[in-house]
Computed example of a mutant assay.
Amino acid sequence: MQPYLAPSTYIDFDHPTVAAQAAALAEGLQRAPLALVKRCFEFVRDEIQHSGDAMRNPVTCKASDVLQHRTGYCYAKSHLLAALLRANGIPTGLCYQRLSVGDQGAPYCLHGLNAVYLPKFGWYRVDARGNKPGVNAQFTPPQEALAFTLQDPMERDLPEIWAEPLPVVVQALLAHDDVGELSRKLPDVPLLAASQTRDSRHT
């Protein structure tokens, strides 16, 4: 679990403001890990604006920058949630969905969320991107209540739980200064053909 507990460049819970926020959120809940996870999740979901919804600059990536500016795309918000939880000793990873940018069909983009290790339930996904009409993400273990469900044959729940953000995500966030510009160039990954997936299982 060590990689999912460690600070890093973008999950920088060793930054003083992130550490202080993590401690404030944990107050009174050190012996109640589920309540602590819920409090941190709801803080990031509700108190940090989704940059695309609010059309609010700057484009953030580091957890400390997300906290400072109180805004971030889903990816950046997942970095902050990971930082707050790791600071409190709760193993937290990053995971992704591939979703249609519109209601259905191309173009597609990655959507960032988190997986938290809960002793009673194992890895459990939460999505702190921020609720709005049609989006109602909650913390309700063991049932997931994510922001989005798959509706298109080319959409995917990517199965990996990453300790660090995907390079394509970091590159996209660092390459754009304006949220409107980033919204037109959201990161994506190609899907392997079924034959390639079968071949990879035998190599």
Rank of each mutant, 00 (worst) to 15 (best):
Y4L: 08
A6P: 13
S8R: 14
Y10T: 07
D12E: 12
F13D: 06
D14M: 10
D14L: 12
H15F: 12
T17S: 15
A19D: 09
A20Q: 09
A20F: 11
Q21E: 15
Q21Y: 03
A22E: 05
A22G: 04
L25C: 01
A26Q: 05
E27N: 02
R31A: 12
P33I: 04
L36D: 09
E42N: 13
F43Y: 15
D46I: 03
Q49N: 15
H50P: 04
A54I: 12
R56M: 14
R56F: 00
N57A: 14
N57W: 05
P58Q: 10
V59F: 14
T60Y: 06
A63G: 15
A63E: 12
S64D: 03
H69E: 10
C74D: 07
C74N: 11
Y75A: 08
Y75D: 06
Y75H: 14
A76S: 10
A76I: 09
K77D: 11
K77Q: 02
L81S: 04
L85C: 08
N88M: 08
N88Y: 05
G93R: 05
L94K: 08
R98H: 00
R98T: 01
L99K: 15
S100V: 09
S100F: 07
V101C: 12
G102Y: 06
A106W: 00
Y108T: 07
C109H: 13
C109A: 09
L110E: 00
G112L: 08
L113S: 00
P119E: 02
Y124P: 13
Y124R: 13
V126W: 01
A128F: 02
N131T: 02
N131M: 09
K132V: 03
F139Q: 13
F139L: 09
P142C: 04
E144H: 05
L146G: 08
A147I: 09
L150M: 11
Q151D: 15
D152Q: 10
P153N: 08
E155R: 04
E155H: 08
L158K: 11
P159L: 11
E160F: 10
E160G: 14
E160Y: 03
I161D: 13
L166E: 04
V170N: 01
H176C: 02
H176D: 03
V179L: 07
G180D: 02
K185D: 15
P187W: 01
D188R: 04
P190H: 02
P190W: 06
L192H: 03
L192P: 04
Q196C: 06
Q196A: 15
T197R: 15
D199V: 13
S200Q: 10
R201I: 06
H202Y: 13
T203I: 07
